[in-house]
């Protein structure tokens, strides 16, 4: 778990792929450059979707891990 408090928390539990990726993408602009979004999803597909989205948009996934039955992401806005 990251120690820094994220700028935005997203509860994406129950959303089916690709909606978790869509929601992260929609919300990333709400944090300043350098800021982070913490997202919690339950759809396993997000483990591939969100990192792929981050790579292709030039953002950074600081953390992506499975916690119990949930997938927790910390995404940093790079640009």
């Amino acid at each position: 778990m990251s120690d820094t408090k994220p700028d935005l928390e997203l509860d994406l539990r129950g959303l089916l792929c690709p909606m978790p990726m869509v929601k992260v993408s929609q919300n990333i602009s709400k944090v300043p450059v350098g800021g982070t979004v913490r997202a919690v999803a339950t759809d396993a597909g997000s483990m591939a979707d969100i990192p792929a989205w981050a790579k292709s948009t030039g953002n950074e996934v600081v953390q992506a891990e499975k916690v119990g039955s949930e997938y927790v992401f910390l995404v940093k806005r790079v640009k």
């Binding site: 483990m47 591939a48 979707d49 989205w53 948009t57």
Partner: peptide
């Protein structure tokens, strides 16, 4: 948004090895 989603899918296609373990682990579950 649609452009980003398309690019993410393409990125996944071009770098499938990067995601393979995660995907297969999900399939096993």
């Amino acid at each position: 948004m649609l452009g980003q989603l398309a690019d993410a899918a393409l990125f996944k296609g071009d770098n499938i090895e990067m995601f393979r373990d995660n995907l297969v682990e999900g399939f096993r579950e």
